[in-house]
Amino acid sequence: MRRIDVIGIGLGVFAAGGLAYLVLQVAGLDSLQAGIWSQVLLIGGLIGWLLTYLFRAGTKQMTYNQQLKDYEEAVLQKRLEELTPEELAKMQTEIEQKKSH
């Protein structure tokens, strides 16, 4: 994520809090109650985002992990393509021998 994206998200969250405050005031709450409930909504959203982040980190579904996995698979695929038919046959024989033991 780029720096400008983080700034934009931060400004968006700030604006959403202000908008929630205004909507709650228009809905009939006094300024103190509207302020409290807009904070409750923002904190609830933050906790929800944090839980999804922890879930993705725990299950290793993060962007970095996916990029690393894709890179490792590409390197292995390239090495496999570079093997001569004789080397490939030798490797398959070794794998079959290890499976039988």
Rank of each mutant, 00 (worst) to 15 (best):
D30G: 02
L68R: 02
L50Q: 09
S31G: 12
L50E: 13
Q66C: 10
Q67L: 06
E72Q: 15
K60M: 15
A20C: 05
Q66V: 11
Y53I: 13
G48L: 09
A27S: 10
A34Q: 02
A57E: 13
G17S: 03
L41T: 00
I36V: 14
L32M: 12
S38C: 00
A16M: 09
L54Q: 10
L51A: 14
F55Q: 13
W37D: 03
L24Y: 02
I47Y: 10
Q61E: 13
Q66H: 10
V40Y: 06
L32R: 08
I36N: 07
W49R: 01
Y71K: 08
V26E: 05
L19R: 12
Q39I: 15
D30H: 02
E72D: 12
R56K: 02
G45S: 09
R56S: 08
F55R: 09
V40P: 00
L41H: 00
E72W: 14
I36M: 06
Q25I: 11
I47C: 14
S31V: 12
Y53K: 11
L54P: 03
G45K: 03
G58Q: 11
Q67D: 01
L41Y: 01
L19N: 08
L22P: 01
L19Y: 06
I36F: 06
S31D: 12
Q39V: 15
Q66F: 09
G45P: 01
A16V: 10
Q33D: 09
T63V: 14
Q61M: 12
D70S: 12
A16G: 10
G58V: 12
Q66N: 08
Q67S: 05
L46V: 07
V23P: 00
D70E: 06
